[in-house]
C-alpha cells in the first residue's frame, strides 16, 4: 500500500531517540489496523454466538419423563392408551408393561389394531399367538403385539419403557427416560 508520509511523522521521529524508519511506523499502523479489525470481528462473532446460544433452551417447561399412571388395580385388563404420553400400558393378570406409541420411523402415533382372528407369529420370546398389532398411519409400518417391526419402513421395534411402583402411594409409575427390553414385566 502506498502512503503519503504523514505530517506528524517528523515530530514522531523527533521524540524518539533513534529515528523511526517508515517500516516501523507502518508495522505499528498495521498492528493497530489488525487490532481494530480483529476486535470488530471478535465483537461481531461474540454477538452472533450469544444470539444463537440464547435460542438453545436451558430450562424445559415440559412434563416430566416420569409420571404416575394410577393404582395398578384400577387399570383394566389388556390395553390402556395414555393419549398425552402416547404410551400403551398393558395389564396381563398381575404383570404390567408399557410400549411406546411413537413409530420408530418418523414418530407418528401408531394405532392399536385388533386382529380379526388370532395370528401365530415368531417373536423374540418364541412362537406366540397375538390378537392385536400396531399400525402406523404415516408410512405404513407394522409391528407385532410386542412391538417388533415386521413391515414398512420402521427400522427397529417400538420402544418399551420401565414401569415401577411408587413407594409413597403404590401407584404405577412410567419412566419414558428408561428404555427396557421386550422381556420386561412388572409383577405386582
Amino acid at each position: 500500500m502506498q502512503r503519503q508520509p504523514d505530517i506528524d511523522h517528523g515530530t514522531a521521529s523527533m521524540t524518539t531517540t533513534t529515528p523511526s524508519p517508515l517500516g516501523a511506523d507502518n508495522s505499528r499502523r498495521q498492528f493497530l489496523h489488525r487490532l481494530g479489525i480483529g476486535a470488530l470481528v471478535a465483537g461481531v462473532a461474540g454477538f452472533v454466538a450469544q444470539s444463537l446460544r440464547s435460542l438453545i433452551p436451558n430450562v424445559l417447561y415440559e412434563p416430566s419423563q416420569r409420571f404416575k399412571v394410577g393404582l395398578p388395580g384400577t387399570l383394566p385388563e389388556g390395553m390402556t392408551f395414555l393419549e398425552d404420553r402416547r404410551l400403551y400400558v398393558f395389564k396381563e393378570g398381575r404383570s404390567y408393561f408399557a410400549i411406546s406409541g411413537a413409530c420408530t420411523h418418523l414418530g407418528c402415533t401408531v394405532k392399536y389394531t385388533k386382529l380379526n382372528q388370532p395370528k401365530q407369529v415368531e417373536l423374540s420370546s418364541g412362537l406366540a399367538t397375538i390378537n392385536h398389532e400396531f399400525h402406523c398411519p404415516c408410512h405404513g409400518s407394522k409391528f407385532y403385539a410386542d412391538g417388533t417391526n415386521y413391515a414398512g419402513p420402521a427400522p427397529r421395534p417400538l420402544r418399551w419403557y420401565r414401569l415401577e411402583l411408587s413407594p409413597d402411594d403404590g401407584q404405577l409409575v412410567a419412566d419414558l427416560g428408561q428404555e427396557v427390553d421386550q422381556g420386561f414385566r412388572l409383577t405386582v
Binding site: 393419549e83 402416547r86 404415516c138
Partner: peptide, 9 residues
C-alpha cells in the same frame, strides 16, 4: 392433537 395421527397422514 398429539395423541391421534390422522389416517392417512
Amino acid at each position: 392433537n398429539p395423541s391421534v395421527t390422522p389416517n392417512p397422514a
